[in-house]
Simulated scan of single mutants.
Amino acid sequence: MIVETADAGDRLPALLAALTSAAVEGLVRELLISGGGPPALLAALREETGAELVPDLTAAVKAARSDRLLVLPATIRLKSGWLEALGRHLRGGGGDALVVGEGGLFGDKPVGLLIGRAPAAAVASPDLKRLRRRLTRGAARLT
């Protein structure tokens, strides 16, 4: 799993707490935090979670060990039932998917991605918006 902070590092603790159940279920085996944030907070989170810190999404995609990546923005608030929806999707074949969160301004909900590592690595200078545009046409929506 990759969490992209994009200057929202202060939102990481809440997201990481929500991801604990995914780690317990075995759906999250590694955590990469990309994009920076408050150094003291990142150091504490790294120690508590075992996360690896990487400078950007390109480095995170390269460092990831899994063939399937769950890439979430730090700003996402996961909906209740997201873990069950992800588990069903993965058991059903697990193609590309959008993980739609709660909140957002003017109906623009934060979205994460479930994507293949190889296609993500082929995108030059990836960011969440670019990956979403290039890799998730026809992707399932996990809400």
Rank of each mutant, 00 (worst) to 15 (best):
residue 44 A to M: 10
residue 119 P to M: 13
residue 12 L to C: 08
residue 15 L to S: 01
residue 45 L to K: 02
residue 68 R to K: 07
residue 120 A to Q: 03
residue 33 I to T: 02
residue 86 L to H: 08
residue 75 T to A: 14
residue 139 A to M: 13
residue 87 G to Y: 11
residue 49 T to D: 09
residue 132 R to T: 13
residue 132 R to N: 14
residue 73 P to F: 06
residue 94 G to V: 03
residue 128 L to W: 12
residue 65 R to C: 12
residue 131 L to R: 13
residue 53 L to K: 09
residue 15 L to Q: 05
residue 71 V to S: 05
residue 11 R to P: 00
residue 104 G to V: 06
residue 33 I to M: 02
residue 124 A to I: 02
residue 55 P to R: 15
residue 26 G to S: 02
residue 6 A to R: 11
residue 120 A to S: 12
residue 16 L to F: 01
residue 83 L to M: 13
residue 41 L to C: 01
residue 115 I to E: 01
residue 129 K to S: 07
residue 74 A to C: 11
residue 5 T to K: 04
residue 1 M to E: 00
residue 129 K to L: 13
residue 131 L to Y: 11
residue 111 V to W: 04
residue 59 A to E: 14
residue 79 K to H: 08
residue 16 L to T: 08
residue 97 A to S: 11
residue 36 G to P: 06
residue 31 L to A: 01
residue 127 D to Y: 02
residue 77 R to A: 11
residue 101 G to F: 02
residue 129 K to T: 11
residue 31 L to D: 01
residue 33 I to V: 15
residue 26 G to P: 00
residue 16 L to D: 05
residue 78 L to N: 06
residue 72 L to M: 07
residue 8 A to F: 06
residue 5 T to H: 08
residue 73 P to A: 07
residue 39 P to D: 15
residue 5 T to Y: 01
residue 12 L to I: 07
residue 110 P to I: 09
residue 121 A to I: 11
residue 48 E to T: 02
residue 81 G to K: 12
residue 118 A to T: 08
residue 118 A to D: 10
residue 93 G to L: 06
residue 118 A to F: 04
residue 8 A to H: 15
residue 68 R to F: 00
residue 83 L to S: 07
residue 122 A to L: 12
residue 105 L to S: 01
residue 89 H to D: 02
residue 96 D to R: 08
residue 45 L to H: 05
residue 21 S to N: 04
residue 35 G to D: 08
residue 113 L to I: 06
residue 84 E to N: 03
residue 70 L to I: 11
residue 116 G to P: 02
residue 18 A to I: 00
residue 58 T to F: 10
residue 36 G to F: 10
residue 33 I to F: 03
residue 12 L to K: 06
residue 138 G to L: 09
residue 48 E to A: 14
residue 41 L to P: 07
residue 98 L to H: 14
residue 84 E to M: 04
residue 32 L to R: 02
residue 19 L to W: 01
